[in-house]
Design a protein around this nucleic acid. Structure first.
Lengths: 242, 242
DNA sequence: TTTTGTATTATGTCATACATATAAAATGAA
DNA sequence: TTCATTTTATATGTATGACATAATACAAAA
């Protein structure tokens, strides 16, 4: 077979792709910041030499990602992209594959293990009081019913996320919540575990975590919550080894 | 003043919004999974009673989010949404506000603190050998130059993420990397710190982390990396208190 | 059998028109 | 002049129709 010189593949990318890149470059080059207004669709169309349709599609992508916001009928401005919000629409457990679900579940474990320092740094008395209430409420109810156990889990751990004072992290927690619920229910169903497995018995309870948060350090808290999450870690590792 | 019956506010959401919701419902109701083909634009347009323009915009959103993929000129299929990839384009530190940058930086600290268990669970000999090489390479070079210090940070910590065997987490790391670089450069510039502040001196070095990974436990490793990240935590907390 | 041509089809792009919400300008009343 | 109201200009939202183009299947030709 005769050898030919290599032939570079032609640029097959769509116009919209190119325009999107040009737009992003435009924002950067002009040092535009969130809140700044951007040119009109027709102006872009003219200066880039494409139809308004293409401009609209490129801008729509950026809008979908939250980088620009359209003030209806008045123009568009640059926006602080809200990373979290967009995920929510598509992060439906029923639309996700098993592997993705598993990874997101792991991610949640990682977040809870990692936020200890921020809890201790930012906690307030008000936070602690509220957490106390949550724990008291759950101690007052009868245990054993898995569905309620899940609700209590969410209340307690959700409060922790909130106490981190990092709204991006909180957004994440909301995002991962359906995934958590989904996997949680599957865990408890598949393996016929009683809820004690998660909230009581030999494991660290919410009460113990709360006390640790009062008198402990980030280090002691990490060790405590690690043991509290033990069954979930077990679950994550078990599946990873099959 | 005469009292009127309440007048429900009219639905002011755009057509595209509604269509997007309808499309998502369609996918769920028909139990469509990644890989399945979906109807054509014109079919949607007809059955939903709107123009092809609206259908296209709604579908474009879902494409931007990675939920559907368009096989050029052949149709569209459902896709496993690649959550991470899309955000790389817009997560440009120069386009983000200070507060978002700060939160993303914190998020990175949280991730590194939280992944210890997964490192120990999934590490392989090959991983450890590669990490050894990375550390040796950085020990062989002259220290002091901040830019190189940053490269070494990225190499070492990037490898850690990779060792977690969680690709979503790795995607996150890639996502957050520009933010990290940006904040890192600002930290070192603003406070005139020498790179020893980050890599040597009284702090935990990469070498020490590696040794810990060999003979330690998740618990000891967490404490070690916590001290390794000390200056970054300081930075995060300092800003949060002003 | 292999190659080449052709029809079909769905998305990509363009052009144009009109609807409509908003803000700014113009107008009118006090 | 000042305030309230109306008008107007404008940019996005939506609709329609057209054609280009790439992927595919299938027929025709070698």
């Amino acid at each position: 077979m005769k050898k030919f010189k290599k032939l570079e593949p032609v640029d097959t990318g769509s116009l919209v792709d190119k325009v999107e890149i040009k737009l992003l470059a435009f924002f950067k080059d002009n040092n535009l910041k969130p809140g700044d207004a951007i040119p009109k669709e027709l102006e872009f169309a003219e200066s880039l030499g494409v139809s308004r349709t293409v401009i609209r599609e490129a801008l729509l992508r950026l809008r979908t990602l939250g980088l620009v916001e359209s003030k209806k009928h008045r123009g568009m401005i640059l926006k602080q992209p809200d990373i979290i919000n967009n995920f929510e629409r598509i992060l439906d457990p029923t639309l996700l594959g098993e592997d993705t679900l598993k990874q997101l579940f792991e991610l949640r474990l990682i977040l809870e293990m990692g936020m200890a320092d921020f809890l201790f740094e930012h906690k307030t008395q008000k936070d602690m009081d509220e957490l106390e209430k949550i724990v008291q409420a759950e101690e007052a109810t009868d245990t054993g019913k898995i569905r309620f156990a899940l609700d209590r889990e969410i209340a307690f751990h959700g409060k922790l996320y909130q106490m981190s004072k990092n709204v991006t992290l909180q957004g994440f927690q909301n995002l991962l919540l359906p995934v958590f619920e989904y996997v949680y229910m599957k865990e408890t169903k598949n393996h016929d575990l009683d809820s004690d497995h998660f909230t009581g018995g030999k494991f660290i309870t919410h009460r113990m975590l709360l006390e640790n948060l009062k008198v402990g350090t980030p280090e002691t808290f990490r060790n405590a919550i690690r043991r509290h999450l033990e069954p979930h870690f077990d679950h994550a590792f078990k599946n990873s080894n099959k």
